[in-house]
Structures are given as C-alpha cells and as structure tokens.
Design a protein around this nucleic acid. Structure first.
Lengths: 384, 384
DNA sequence: CCGATTTAGTTTCACAGTAGAATTTATTGG
DNA sequence: CCAATAAATTCTACTGTGAAACTAAATCGG
C-alpha cells in the first residue's frame, strides 16, 4: 500500500471533506457532469449547500466546471465534472494461460490494452508478469493510482486469493506480492463481481438499486447488486451458481453434475455438444455464427443452451427479483442468438411479474473483464 | 390509515426527533435494554450525545430507565429500555381455510393467540373476519397500534395482494379493506418475508448483516436479508424458489415440474411419497416422528427429503453466501430429523467455505407465521 | 434595444446535531 | 474515609445544514 498524495478520495471522510462532498463526487463520477441544481435534487440537499460543498472541490481541482448548457430560458446550467484523467487505473484479468490488461481513467473508460501469455502459474512469476505490465503502462500514463486484479476465484478480503482452481492457487497473498513489485495499491477481486461493479457504476446497471449480471463463458457466474451495493458474501462466495441444477438432462459438467449450469451453458459444454452432434469441433463464436446463419444442427444446440440460460435467469429473477438482469461474458451473444429460446424458458419458469424483468444482452468484448478489474481498483480508491 | 396520536416512531424523522434518536430507539428495540455507553459504542456516538438524545425520550416516556447494573468497579450501568407494552400489534396469518392471529408487544413477544376457520375466500368476507378478530383483541389489549397480515402470496407495496393463489386472489386491496373495517393501520406482506423480518429483528438473525430463512411447509420459500435489510424484490417476488430444480428426480410438483423444491420438499410431497411407499397416508409430523423412532421406510423418505433440503440450502449459500441460514416453517423439523442427510448434501453441493455457513434449525410453532405478520406491522410502525 | 421573466447559483444568517474537555455521580476496595 | 474506576452529565465550540433574500445570466416580447 503506497500513499501517493494524489487528490480525490470520494467518500467516507476521505481527506477531511464533509460526507456529502463525497456523495457529490460519487454522483458525478457515476453519472457524468451534473449542474448544481441537479446534484441538489438527487442528493436531497439545498442549493446553498451545493455552492458551499463544491467551492473547495473546484478550488482544489477535484471538480472542474464545464461549458454552460443553455436551457430554453433562464440562467444556463453549469455542469460540474470530475477530471477523469487526473488518475489512471490498471485492470488485470488473469486466465489460465494469459494476462489481459487495460488502463482506464477514473470513469472506467479504457485508454489502452494489452495481452501477454503467462509462463507458468507460480504466484511469484504471475506477480512479476503483472508488475512488468504495470511498469510498461507506467511509462505512457502518468499518475497510475491503483491496480485491480480479477480472476475466476474467490477473495474474501480483496487481498488474498482464497481459491483459484484454474491456477491451482489456495490462499495466495496476491495483492501483497504485486504491491511489493510495483509500489501501487492493489485490489484482488472475483472476476464476475468486478464486472458487476463496473456495470453497476459505469454500465448497464447505472443507478439501479438491484441488478444482476449473469456471465457465460469458461464458466457460468452471477454478480448481484442489492440495496445499491455489490453482494460479496461472507466468504466472498456469493454468485457461485455454476453448479446449480437447471433441468433434468444427461449433460454433465467437469465435476460430474447432471444438468447443472456449467454442464449446459459453459463454452466448453456447448462446444462439446456441438462436436457430439456434428462430429467436428468448433469454438463458441463459430457455433453462434453458424446458428445465426441457419445451420439446423447448430441452431438446435444454441436453442438448447438458450433454454438453459433462460432457466438460469428465471432462477435469478425468482431468487432476487432484481430491476434488471444483464447477460455478459464471452458467451453473452448466446442471449441474442438463442434469445428466443431463452426468453421462452424464462417466461415459463419465472414466477409472476418477475418475468417482466428487463433482460439486457450487450456486445461483450473480452477486455470487459479487465475493465471490471479496473473498476474494482476505482471502487477501492473511491470508497476506501 | 388512522393516526392514533401514540408515541414512539423510531426512525426517519418520526415526530421531529433527530435521526440518531431513532437509531437509539431501534437499537434498543432490537437488542433489548442497553446502557448509554453501550449505545454510544454501537452507534458511533459520543457519551454527551447519548445523554442529550435520551433525555427527551425518557421525559416523554418513550424510554424507561431500568435498574442499574453494577460492574466490578465504577459507576453502575444504567440500562435504557423501550416500554414494550406501550403498544400492541396484531399479526394475522391467512391460509386457505383459516386465520391465525396473535397479539404481540413492540418486541414481537406473543401475548395472546387465536384461530378461526374461514367461511369462503371472498376478500370482503375475509376482511370482515379479520376485523372481527382484531375487535375481539381490542377489548383485552389497550392501545392496538397496527395490524400485519401475512399470506402465501405477493404484495409489492404492502397494501394490495398481487396474487395469492391459494385464495384465488389477484390484485385485492386487502389493506384498504381491513383498514376501513377496523380503523387501524394495516400492512400486508408475504408470509416468508414477514417471518424473515421477525427473525432478523427478534430471532435467530438478530444483528446479522446477511441472513437467509428457508421455509418448509405447504410450500417451500426463501426470505433474504442482505446489507442488513430485507430483500423484497422489485415485484415483491424475491425468494420464490419453490419451483427451483434441485436434482434429477421423477417426483413432480402440482405444476408438473420434475425434481423441483416443491416436488421434493413440500409437506404434500413428503406425505405423497410416504403414501406411495407405505400404502397408508400420514401427516408430516407423524412421518418425522416415525423416522426418528427408526422406521426404515420413513427414514428413507425423510433422508431423501433431507437431501433435497441440503441441496436447496446449498443453492442459497452459493447464491448469496449469507452469514447464517435458518430452517423454519411447519416442516422445519425435517432439518433436524433429516439433518444428517441434509448436511451431507449441503457439504457436497456447496462451493468452498460456504459450506461452513451455520445452519440453524429451531422448533417452529405455527403461530410464528402470525408473529411474523406482527413483525411486519412493527416494522411499518417503526420505520415509516 | 430594453425591461420583464425565468432559472441557476450565491450570500447571509440562524439553527440543529455533534463531540472534546472538564465535571459530577455512583460504585468497589482498601 | 479515601483512592480508584467508570458512567453519565454539563459546558462550550464547531460543523453541516437550509430558509430567505439576493445576484447572475440567459430568453422573450414589445
């Protein structure tokens, strides 16, 4: 943990601001430039309070006044914004064989990205590789403020990796290792939780009080926001729905469960089903493209997976009844290509009006994972 | 909605108290008598603040000073308590054919109870029956402050019953009907949510930040507390896990799902399985007693149900990773009698350390449902 | 072009809620 | 009786807040 003497620090008594000053900064960070009146309305404060609160923030450069926006009549609105380029964050997504990195600004916008394969999975080696990548970005981006590392595993405290089976890790103090190596504050997070945090602050979940992210990819995951905050779980294990049984089916996952989410929905499962059906292997995106073009065998497979996805989101809707469910991950396009089957299953299995829950499927680039990692670093910076 | 000019009103600016006065009252309501130092510690306030905040509360009778408790040395602690008998609440649990009512004090202690069968399920008739019961209690208990009604259904707003299938209701404005009939504020709640609220404030979930209640009875339900607050869901539909698929099984529920929670765990399902196996029907408690005594056929059935329960709580633990899971409902004893099978399945299907989540099974009396209803009324009174 | 109108933002001021320091109160133990 | 201990209180200064009145910067309409 290094103290960089940088400004900003958004919430609980960061520096020595009143708490509401932090809420002002956070509201602007999440929602973009806002005029004082609007901030007053959103935060339940009076106009005078906003003048008072923002004055020192502007004086110290934490907030900057944008160009006035004219309304139909009356004095124009004076939007206030955070200088999002005053700080930069690095997000790292670790997979079994590679490391994906992005640099973002304070609002999670990706400014640069890179990829590097990993030579082995010894924690020290991985930490060194991360540090190398961070150093490389450090030369082009001034003012790196924090590093977030996301992986398919569990970290109850944001510092130690409890488990990461794909790396064979248990209780690896990754944050400490990387902090020593690159002299920046480091946060470790579960990849799905990190992605959910990013979407909640800067993406499809912006401003929502309850929100769920279902990811389809190497595994199946779930991120949850309830009462406006990410649900992590006491052991950091919330959202471990990969082995949830969805239907009576013969498909088995790598742990031998029949009909679980991983058995029906993981990229590996869909690819295996395709190979069984067509005799030839193909990666998930090719399968999806084929189904889209009308190949009947692939269409059947995609529809079956889409149905499983529909059952999964029905389970999520029945469980938590969130305001919105986002389908994400490398396999998110399954929610589009197999969308019809998905929605049919969802409507069949969902209880009551929970079937009205908006399901959002967006194009997903792989660097979203690393962006999520950066969002975790931003969160830690801003809420700590 | 009637205003009774009664005192108390615990939180956001009730009356015209400072917000922290409300937090003081709530802390005492939930945790029982507490001395000022302890309150200061728990609420993050200073000693002087507690003197100041409590003075008017004591003067107005909202708080009463108990008998001083001597420590080893030093001035003795002066516990402050709420006069729990200053207000009384009625909790009503509606089932298909009957109405169960309790009277509680402010802390949810049951002071009286009653039961009455329902003649039909016309909303007006049911509302009248409720009003009769409330009036009957009104003669013995002075100062009735509110009525809570719990039922196996959904109420997104606490006033209208969205659906209650067992009564054949849709969009019934039950709270309005009963308020007109008995001139007291009325709240309507889902029975499992109400029970969860009661357990969170006055029971096994006291003080917990995250907490889950799994109920086994006529149906299977789930109540969730996250970030210290009950999760209701946008449509009031959170916790609808009755039709969640648990395992590959031939058992079907009344909707035709194979292997869902209701198909394996509802009282009806266990009773049906028993009749199939032994040829003679028996109610759930008899089945449980038989299994306990060592009857092999009943033991097998109970173990199978226990296993299903274990899978269900594993799903809950994997999903939300709460600090504790409570098994409740008329069939809660399944968690004891079939506890071994339950825990085995839980440990097999749970991810990581979530299997360390404490599972709490407590004796469950049917009036707990009505007590939950009363807790909803208390919540509404205190948080409104 | 100029004053009325509209809305954003500011200044002034009084007030509520808070904690720090010093003090009082009620006890135990010698 | 007195020292030690810890709870509770008094006194006081400070911080964050909004109401009321005001200023600023635009449009509109003659």
């Amino acid at each position: 943990m290094t103290d960089q003497a940088t400004p900003l620090g958004v919430t609980p008594a960061a520096g020595d601001l009143p708490e509401s000053a932090g809420r002002v900064l956070l509201e602007i960070l999440i929602n973009g430039p806002l005029p004082r009146v609007e901030l007053a309305r959103r935060l339940g404060l009076s106009g005078p309070s906003l003048t008072r609160l923002t004055r020192p923030l502007i004086a110290s450069g934490r907030l900057i006044e944008g160009v006035a926006r004219h309304q139909s009549v009356g004095r124009p609105l004076q939007p206030l914004d955070i200088d999002v380029s005053s700080e930069h964050f690095i997000g790292i997504k670790l997979t079994g064989g590679a490391l994906y990195a992005v640099v973002t600004d304070l609002r999670g916008e990706v400014l640069a990205e890179s990829e590097r394969s990993l030579n082995g999975n010894d924690p020290a080696v991985v930490a060194a590789e991360i540090a190398t990548e961070v150093a490389r970005f450090g030369t082009t981006f001034a003012g790196l403020t924090g590093v977030g590392i996301a992986l398919g595993g569990r970290s109850p405290d944001g510092r130690v990796v409890g488990e990461a089976n794909f790396l064979g890790w248990r209780n690896v103090p990754l944050a400490d290792l990387v902090e020593v190596a690159c002299n920046l504050p480091v946060v470790v997070a579960n990849d799905v939780n990190a992605l959910t945090q990013a979407q909640h602050w800067f993406g499809a979940g912006r401003g929502l009080d309850s929100f769920a992210v279902v990811t389809v990819g190497a595994g199946v995951g779930l991120g949850l926001v309830m009462h406006g905050r990410l649900v992590q779980g006491v052991h950091g294990g919330a959202g471990s729905i990969g082995h949830q049984v969805l239907t009576n089916s013969d498909a088995t996952c790598w742990r031998g469960h029949r009909g679980c989410a991983n058995a029906l929905l993981s990229a590996q499962a869909i690819e295996a089903a395709t190979e069984r059906a067509t005799g030839s292997p193909a990666p998930l995106d090719v399968i999806l493209r084929g189904a889209e073009r009308g190949d009947p065998a692939l269409r059947a497979i995609v529809d079956q997976a889409g149905e499983a996805l529909g059952l999964l989101i029905a389970g999520v809707a029945n469980f938590a009844d969130p305001q919105k469910i986002l389908i994400a991950g490398e396999g998110a396009r399954l929610g589009t290509v197999g969308g019809h089957a998905m929605l049919r299953a969802f409507h069949r299995a969902g209880a009551w009006e929970t079937t009205e829950t908006p399901i959002d499927v967006q194009p997903f680039a792989f660097n979203e994972w690393a962006r999520g990692a950066a969002a975790s670093a931003i969160y830690a910076r801003v809420m700590a």
